[in-house]
């Protein structure tokens, strides 16, 4: 089999892209995408690691199914919040949505 590291590298890359997106993107939707990417990275990790266990099991893949469901719910909630925020502020630029500050 291929070394685990390959899969790990891919998920790491994906994670980095996601984090990069969270840090540098202004648009709230893009942040959501970034979060999705990060979730995918994590799920990829789960699958890979579950395959490479001493006794390979399917628990990682089960977990992924759960994670996707949660991600969907969370995306829906997030989208709902962004929608309402857009309605109120006419803007989804999070740099402008900064009233919760110290």
């Amino acid at each position: 089999m291929e070394p685990l590291f390959n899969y790990f590298f891919v998920s790491l890359l994906l994670f980095a892209i996601g984090v990069y997106g969270l840090i540098s993107k202004r648009n709230a939707l893009r942040l959501l995408f970034a979060v999705e990417i990060i979730i995918n990275a994590a799920t990829l990790n789960f699958v890979a690691f579950s395959r490479y266990l001493p006794t390979p099991s399917a628990s990682g893949q089960v977990f992924v199914v759960f994670a996707i469901a949660f991600a969907a719910a969370e995306a829906a909630a997030g989208l709902a919040i962004i929608l309402v925020a857009f309605r109120l502020n006419k803007d989804v630029d999070i740099r402008e949505l900064r009233r919760l500050r110290g």
Binding site: V19, R98, L100
Partner: peptide, 18 residues
């Protein structure tokens, strides 16, 4: 002084996280 850290900008929070 310290509260200036809380900018309210999510990106920066994430950056700090990272």
């Amino acid at each position: 002084r310290v509260r200036k850290i809380q900018t309210g900008v999510a990106n920066q929070y994430v950056f700090a996280f990272a």
